[in-house]
Computed example of a mutant assay.
Amino acid sequence: MTQHLTERDVRDIATYARIGLTDDELVQMTTDLNSIIDTLKPITEFDLDGVTPTFHPIGSLSNVMREDTERESFTQEVALENAPKQQDGSFLIPSILGEGGDR
C-alpha cells in the first residue's frame, strides 16, 4: 500500500475538523485513509480525453421556479385568527431562552 497521507497529515486534518484522536486511533485512521485512496486509484486510469464535462447529472435541467411576483396575501387579522396567543398584532410565543414566559 502506498503512503499517500502521513500521520502528521491525518493529525492536521483531525485538528482542523476538531476530531480528537488517540495515538492508536491516529495510526488506524492513517491506515484506513491510505487504503481508501488506494481503492479509488482505478478512477485515475480512465481515458477521459474528449469527454465533455457535465455540470448536472440530468443534463439540460433548468430553473423551474416561478417568477417572484407580488400578489394579494393574508391580512394580518386572518394570519392571526388561529394563533393560540397574540399581542399587539403579533404572535405571542413561549420564550425558550432566558427567564421564561411569553414573548
Rank of each mutant, 00 (worst) to 15 (best):
Q3W: 01
M29C: 05
E70M: 07
M1F: 04
F46P: 00
E72S: 13
E70C: 10
K41P: 02
L92S: 13
T31M: 09
V10Q: 04
I36S: 08
L80K: 09
S35I: 00
Q86N: 11
D23I: 00
V64A: 15
P53T: 09
F74R: 12
R66C: 08
F91I: 08
D68C: 06
S73V: 14
D9K: 03
P84D: 14
T15H: 05
P53H: 12
D12N: 12
I13Q: 06
V64D: 14
H56E: 14
G100A: 11
M29V: 00
M1S: 02
T69E: 15
E67G: 10
V10Y: 04
G89N: 15
D32W: 00
Y16K: 12
Y16C: 06
F55V: 04
R66S: 14
F55K: 12
T31D: 12
G100P: 04
A17D: 10
L26R: 11
S95H: 09
I93C: 10
M65K: 12
T39D: 13
S95R: 15
Q76Y: 02
D88N: 15
R103H: 05
G59Q: 10
G59D: 11
L40W: 01
T54H: 08
I13T: 00
R66A: 15
T22A: 08
S62F: 01
P57D: 04
S90Y: 09
V27N: 07
Y16E: 05
L92C: 03
D32K: 06
I13A: 14
A17C: 14
Q76T: 11
V10S: 02
P53D: 10
E25I: 00
Q28V: 06
N34A: 01
D32Y: 10
H4E: 06
K85V: 04
D68P: 03
G100N: 10
E77A: 15
F55A: 08
G101K: 06
H56K: 06
L26H: 07
I13V: 12
D9Q: 08
T75R: 06
T52L: 09
V51G: 04
T52C: 01
L26W: 01
I93P: 04
